Simulated scan of single mutants.
Amino acid sequence: MLALVMGTLVNGLTAFFVPIEATEGWCRSAIAAINSFGLLGLATGSVAMGFVADRLGIRTVCLIAVSVMGVCLLLTAHAHSLWQLYAIFFIAGALSGGALFAPVFAAVGNWLPASAGLAIGIAAAGQAVGQGGVPLLSAYLIERFGWRGAMMVLGTVILVVLLPLATFMRDAPAPPSGGRAEQAPPIRPSLAVPIFSAAVFFCCACMAVPLMHLMPMIQGYCIPATEAGGVMFAMLLAAIAGRIAYGKLCDLVGPLSSWAVASTLQTAGVLAFTQFASLSGFLIFAIVYGFAYAGVMTSVLVSARAFTPAARRGALMGTILAFAWLGHAFGGYQGAATYDLTGNYMGAFAIGSAAGVLNLALVATLLILARPRLTAARMSA
């Protein structure tokens, strides 16, 4: 479910930039805004659906998410104006991605609390499959059916494949009474949540630039869409292993330290993408970057879980992740707007890397603030 739904919402539109631009005549920033509206919807839905999931249960919200995503893609295939696409993707983000993302990861952590980092890393690897696979699949579908036909196929696949899977979702059993109480967060939530929210905004503003614009940037060097999609797929295949590895790293050294490592590599890697111009160069570096940056979202999820109290985790994680999707929306649109202004992607990737530096400063602040409590916890253990 994470692969197909989140893979479509987060960066699945990257394969559609050039064909929509060619057939509809819209500028690239206007097309990128379709994705940004979807992520704005995801940010809105992340807050609201955190409360809903606590009351309706994981199976119900997953059925809602899958149904809405499939129907919205079918509607997209018949839309003929930008405002229609903006509205459709906003609804898909709010009621599909918002219903799925935070509740699914919260459920995974609840089922396996002793190894939540590794469990969330494995689930996040499924999303990485989609973020690489959906653009690659879309490139082939667009070549055969056009961009509207590709949307029809994707919507149908989501409904046929994911509705049965959603019926198998179950909430974790409640912990036994008298069991070991969960430790209090290392920083009080009133301080941690604003810093977290700002950090994930800049972190995802950096991440969004290659996720949304690497494929069209490669196509700008006269490399076919299917081969450019292959680079994305290779990058996110490497990210599968990376997300699992970083999930284990979260359990070993702590999620904030893992986040700092992944963010440092991501920030440097985004800027490095501008130094390549050949398919082989992009492919080799994309594999390296895919593993390096992969732990960012895993570490963010595990950190948010560790720094929010269990009684309010759904709502607080939803709030933090809302800023992550706002950052994605900004980063994706910024990349396209900068391209429209300059005619290349150099400035867009540089701005994305600068956002990564701001994220690193905020992660360092969280590490400093949390150190006394974390040190005391290790000594008592």
Rank of each mutant, 00 (worst) to 15 (best):
F330Y: 15
P103E: 08
A348M: 02
M49E: 10
G230P: 07
I195V: 11
F196I: 06
G109W: 05
F323G: 07
I20M: 13
A324T: 12
R148C: 06
F89Q: 13
S29K: 02
P103T: 10
I195G: 03
P216W: 01
A322L: 02
R305I: 13
G25S: 01
Q334K: 05
Y293N: 08
Q275W: 09
L159Y: 04
L74Y: 07
G318A: 04
S278H: 13
I320L: 03
L13K: 03
A268R: 05
T44A: 15
V153I: 12
A241F: 15
V10H: 12
G281C: 06
R28C: 03
S280E: 14
A350P: 01
G121V: 06
A79F: 04
L236E: 04
G149M: 04
L256G: 09
L63S: 08
I244V: 15
F276V: 03
M169V: 07
A92F: 02
T14R: 07
L165M: 14
Y289G: 02
A166R: 08
M152R: 12
M212I: 05
Q266C: 12
L360P: 06
I368C: 14
I91H: 04
M151C: 13
P173W: 09
F16S: 04
A355P: 06
F276M: 10
T226A: 13
A354Q: 11
A292W: 05
L112P: 00
A114V: 11
A205F: 09
L271D: 04
G178A: 10
G269H: 06
R148Y: 07
P175N: 04
L165G: 01
A15W: 00
P309F: 09
F282E: 02
E143F: 02
G93Y: 03
S263C: 10
A370F: 05
Y86C: 09
F101H: 11
A348I: 02
L316C: 06
V160D: 03
A48K: 08
P189F: 09
G38V: 01
F201W: 11
M379T: 13
D251M: 11
R180K: 14
V363Y: 08
Y333T: 14
M151Q: 12
V104T: 15
V161W: 05
M346W: 10
S380K: 13
S177M: 10
S263K: 00
F196S: 08
W325A: 15
G179K: 03
G98I: 08
V71C: 07
G117C: 08
A22R: 14
C204M: 15
V300T: 13
A310G: 00
I91V: 15
A150T: 01
T298V: 13
